[in-house]
């Protein structure tokens, strides 16, 4: 496991290294962050989380593809995510239920940052947590701008 962590840690050419969430973190910072992450694998077609369930964690796509869609409506595709993308980030901020379903399109590996661990990261490594929080805020800002632009186009 440690070998795996070392292999992944901070390499700019790996999905975790290219993930926007960790932009600006040094190799040393990445080693610390990796200690807080859980790695999971999912089969093609497996549900990662359901719409409406209590979100507890943020997911970072390490390999494979993930569809974000409305629950029970796989045709209503909201986004198809590629390695390096992250999803479920609202779970780090509050107890609100998941806004959509995430389902693996192909065999998938994800790194998971649990909310409790993120709070521990804030307590123990405030500088790293603040950088991650900044990237989260930027992602949410981008999404808000896109939604406003889409609403403007519809009207």
């Amino acid at each position: 496991m440690f070998k795996f962590f070392r292999r992944q840690g901070g390499h700019p050419d790996t999905p975790l290294g290219t993930c926007r969430l960790f932009a600006g973190l040094s190799d040393r910072d990445m080693q610390i962050v990796l200690g807080f992450l859980h790695f999971r694998t999912y089969q093609a077609g497996e549900v990662i989380f359901d719409e409406g369930e209590d979100g507890q964690a943020l997911y970072i796509l390490v390999s494979g593809q993930v569809n974000i869609n409305r629950q029970g409506r796989e045709d209503a595709l909201l986004a198809r995510l590629e390695p390096g993308a992250f999803f479920g980030e609202m779970a780090l901020l509050d107890d609100a239920p998941r806004a959509a379903q995430a389902r693996a399109v192909s065999p998938v590996e994800v790194a998971v940052l649990f909310r409790g661990d993120f709070l521990n990261l804030m307590d123990d490594h405030a500088r790293i947590a603040s950088r991650i929080s900044l990237q989260l805020a930027r992602q949410l800002g981008d999404r808000l701008r896109r939604m406003i632009a889409a609403a403007g186009e519809r009207t």
């Binding site: 859980h38 999971r40 369930e53 507890q56 998971v112 649990f114 409790g116």
Partner: peptide, 27 residues
């Protein structure tokens, strides 16, 4: 943290988030 990671790895995907929450609550 390593012990915790090993324990969590044994949990099936469907119950993973709830189990993490459980560990956090016990802690």
């Amino acid at each position: 943290a390593t012990f915790r990671h090993f324990l969590i790895r044994a949990v099936p995907n469907a119950f993973f988030e709830r189990t993490l929450y459980l560990f956090d609550q016990v802690d």
